[in-house]
Amino acid sequence: ETETHALYMKKVDGELQELRQRHASATAKILEHKRKLAEMGHRILRIVVKQECTRKV
């Protein structure tokens, strides 16, 4: 039984390793999404400004 435990924990170790990798990749994706959102916000702002100008002319 004790040996089974040791074996199982080795497996958990591996699973945790994989989870950490997935976490790192998710963190990178989130950063990229945030960057994209900021960029799109900027683009929308530019459209708003241009549209306002057009309207006044």
């Binding site: 994706k29 999404h33 994209k36 959102l37 799109m40 683009r43 929308i44 530019r46 459209i47 241009k50 549209q51 057009t54």
Partner: peptide, 19 residues
């Protein structure tokens, strides 16, 4: 990611028109 793509796609024609 899909949502962002959609948002970008709706941004494109507006930019073309105004900017």
């Amino acid at each position: 990611a899909t949502q962002h793509k959609e948002l970008e796609e709706s941004l494109a024609p507006l930019e073309k028109e105004f900017v």
